[in-house]
């Protein structure tokens, strides 16, 4: 059984705002399916005594003191932006939503 359907891939593409052709969807659905099956095999190896982990190192409670560090200048902050205006990042009109 497929671990991920073509429809699910199409849904994810929509959520990620990535336009995909029908061929691309077919191709990616089959690739992702193989990847997920590989992950399944790893999961089989990890029994109940292995807790799911989000981090490879056994670290916890890494914090920093609440002390202000100088920020970037607005010029530097905006320097990598494709477009800016009025010292703000300029982005294309946001479609389909109303706030």
């Amino acid at each position: 059984m497929a671990a991920i359907s073509r429809d699910e891939v199409a849904h994810l593409a929509r959520l990620a705002r990535i336009e995909m052709s029908s061929e691309e969807l077919d191709h990616l659905a089959s690739e992702l399916d193989q990847i997920l099956h590989a992950v399944d095999r790893v999961q089989e190896a990890a029994k109940d005594d292995v807790p799911p982990t989000s981090h490879p190192l056994p670290l916890k409670n890494v914090t920093r003191p609440d002390v202000v560090i100088p920020s970037l200048s607005p010029e530097d902050a905006l320097s990598g932006a494709p477009a800016s205006d009025e010292q703000r990042f300029k982005v294309p009109q946001i479609l389909g939503d109303a706030e």
Binding site: D66, I69, S71, A77, E86, Q87, R88
Partner: peptide, 27 residues
Amino acid sequence: NTNTKMFCGCSTEFGGEPNTQTCPVCL
């Protein structure tokens, strides 16, 4: 009302000029 942001040292002061309180982390 912490002095800095959740995950970086940028100031949380209200009402600053646009994009004067950003850094690589919060961007």
